[in-house]
Write a protein that binds this DNA or RNA. Structure first.
Length: 252
DNA sequence: AACTAGTACAACCGCTCCTGC
DNA sequence: GGCAGGAGCGGTTGTACTAGT
């Protein structure tokens, strides 16, 4: 992809714009020998003329091992919708429930799929239905073709880290709040509306990856009705913004 | 075939939070 | 407790690609 608009250097002299394969290689070498973190020292130690921020972003969103490339599956889409309804734009929190997906990827996906303006919900619903069927086929094909994906997502219990265990918590909100006490003040944006979905579609403790996938697969049918609700939220927000009323609105 | 709108993706920016001193 | 530097997060932008007209 050619991107000429970001070429050049920053005021601090850092290179900006698209990364070259050589830069990627240097960054991978640096991280594999020094580990993640200490991004500010990357430029000094690795020979990269990039800011620490830029290096971290490139690593987290593109170079880090275990990242999934390719389409968001219907199951992942369902999870994104549900968790966004719970937490709003907490992309990094949502990303913790989607192994191999980055907050940036989820954020981009949400913006392109659910923040569309100007056309009628019915049009979107038709598009989404077509797309859902296509993605479902692709997902099933992926599962059949690459069973190792399952293995990487649901490792043996003895190797499961705290973060990975969270995926199978019956109540994701509680899981995240337990794990990130500093976020205790976070208020779910639409808890009431999603509560019934939440209770029905989050398998209990000890559930396997397959259980989660199965539950979310079942959820895709009721979600047909959720699309309309999401568009209503958008409309509601626009009305709220237009009237300058900040009280009690949605945070989408 | 040409044009346009929508989509996907990569990257930057500014702000907030966290941590060490 | 206050401050500074680094890390992380969310919002936004820029460009290429694709599908529809």
């Amino acid at each position: 992809m050619m991107m000429t608009g970001w070429g050049g250097v920053s005021e601090q002299g850092w290179r900006k714009g698209p990364w070259t394969p050589e830069e990627d290689k240097l960054l991978v070498q640096y991280v594999s020998s020094h580990g993640e973190g200490r991004w500010s020292s990357v430029s000094r130690c690795s020979g990269l003329n990039r800011s620490g921020k830029s290096c971290r972003l490139r690593w987290v969103n593109y170079l880090r091992p275990g990242l999934k490339r390719g389409n968001i599956t219907p199951q992942e889409e369902g999870i994104i919708i549900e968790l966004h309804a719970l937490w709003g734009n907490k992309w990094s929190t949502i990303a913790r429930y989607l192994p191999g997906r980055t907050d940036n990827e989820i954020k981009n996906y949400w913006r392109t799929h659910f923040k569309k303006r100007g056309s009628k919900p019915s049009d979107h619903q038709k598009q989404d239905k077509k797309k859902f069927n296509r993605q479902k086929d692709q997902f099933q094909e992926q599962i059949q073709r690459a069973p190792e994906i399952n293995a990487s997502v649901s490792p043996p219990q003895s190797d499961v880290t705290t973060d990975q265990k969270m995926i199978f918590e019956p109540n994701p909100q509680a899981a995240v709040l337990n794990h990130h006490p500093q976020q205790q003040t976070t208020t779910p944006s639409s808890t009431v509306q999603v509560e019934s979905i939440n209770n029905q579609y989050f398998p209990g403790p000890g559930a396997t990856y397959d259980d989660v996938v199965s539950a979310w697969s079942d959820m895709m049918i009721p979600l047909d009705g959720l699309w309309g609700w999401l568009w209503d939220i958008d409309d509601q927000n626009e009305k709220t913004a237009a009237s300058g009323n900040n009280g009690g609105g949605f945070v989408f």
